[in-house]
Design a protein around this nucleic acid. Structure first.
Lengths: 232, 232
DNA sequence: CGGTGAATTGATCATCATCAAAGGGCGTGG
DNA sequence: CCACGCCCTTTGATGATGATCAATTCACCG
């Protein structure tokens, strides 16, 4: 287990703040795996045997509905874990996971974690914290989908991106636009048009880099009221 | 603590399968509270001090975005718990909760549960299970919002309703239509029109009762393919 | 009764999906 | 090295879906 893995563990909601011996035990018994871009990590409906922690790269969680349509449920980066809540129960994964860049993951056996929780309940609390992060992200996504337009969601996406970076010049888009569209719940064509609309608001796109003139302006756009009548 | 409370505890993902003494201890130290329809249980941003379990009635979880728009995140009924993941950490509630019918809840102190988890790690696993139910529900909601039309979501909603009930004649709608609209992420007017469209598919509405001629037909409608191009 | 809020319906507009076409980057095979 | 094909991206035209604004009806309640 290399230093990058330890770093990821310490930065994750799931494993941070664990007593060192517990963490070491877990890490010693977990597997590090590499996936190349496009590879499937697990499929919706498969028995959930493991919890994953992203050491490097990007992962997409998605769902294929009965009709065959794909919905991107989450896009995760370094230091995020997934599958926590499911792998502890005898249940199938509710989503599929796919590497969207070359990436390395730590794979921890669910049964082992289960045993560890019994011995060290703090770990259970940590896992609850980690799932809470997921929960929160999904709640925000539902809010965005219900109360904001596609352009606004894109603006929000760019603001989030920029906040991770110091300079807003030539901000690299983390993955291709088809995927961004899926993440935002719109079609690629609509994304293209949404970018065009943002050009009037100081956003320029060149290839897979974005330049943001005025971050405040963009933030305002994302939060503009649509005047909901159901607010009493 | 009356029998209804015990019943709810045993039917909940959160407290079922707990050793009797642990359950009794928890219950003995929790409060039963009543709310009348429309009353606020807690507000988004408040410190999360408690976990709630619904003994009777209906509760709405919603979020007010920075723009002031309301998005209904979940609607919960008997035996469901909420606030589990949050109340165990020193964080504010990410949503607001409101009683949408007269209802009785069991309120369990977060700090107490935290102590109990340390003593009895099984409880931690149970809570993980409970949050997993929430997680799953949200994932489904995201999928529905991204990949289905309003009419389809309404069809799905009715199918879910009907599956709880044995006869599909005069199926009572559990709450008013404005709220159903919010739950489905559409405006009340659009809901009205969606109901009108379903009339052609064997669904009739009288007041707050629905009659479904052919449940299978409705299910098909909800799952009809929209022919997604992003499925490779 | 008068008033208030829920529900419906009509008319219109904004948003977004869909279908079609075309340009550009990139890797593969000749 | 170049040609070809493939996929991503953009743009245009059109249609479906749902929001908004306005008006009306109805049930309920003080």
């Amino acid at each position: 287990m290399n230093s990058k893995s330890v770093e990821a563990a310490q930065a994750s909601a799931m494993l941070s703040q664990l007593p060192a011996p517990v963490l070491e035990n877990l890490m010693a018994n977990s597997v590090q795996r590499s996936f190349s871009s496009g590879e499937t990590i697990f499929l919706q409906g498969e028995p959930a045997y493991a919890i994953f922690l992203i050491v490097e790269g990007w992962v997409k969680l998605y769902r294929i509905s009965t009709s065959g349509a794909e919905a991107v449920v989450a896009i995760l980066k370094r230091n995020r874990s997934f599958g926590e809540a499911v792998a502890l129960r005898d249940q199938p994964y509710p989503v599929s996971a796919e590497a969207i860049s070359d990436c390395t993951l730590i794979q921890i056996d669910g049964k082992r974690i289960r045993r560890q929780i019994i011995e060290n309940p703090e770990l259970g609390l940590n896992l609850l914290a980690a799932t809470q992060v997921h929960l929160h992200a999904l709640i925000e996504q539902v809010e965005q989908l219900k109360a904001r337009s596609g352009v606004q969601r894109l603006a929000e996406f760019l603001v989030d991106l920029a906040e991770g970076q110091p300079n807003h010049n030539r901000l690299p888009l983390p993955y291709n636009k088809t995927l961004i569209a899926g993440h935002l719940g719109i079609q690629p064509e609509s994304l293209s048009r949404a970018f065009a609309k943002l050009r009037d608001h100081g956003v320029r796109i060149e290839g897979n880099h974005a330049t943001i003139d005025d971050l405040e302006l963009l933030r305002d756009l994302a939060n503009q009221d649509k005047g909901q009548p159901w607010v009493r």
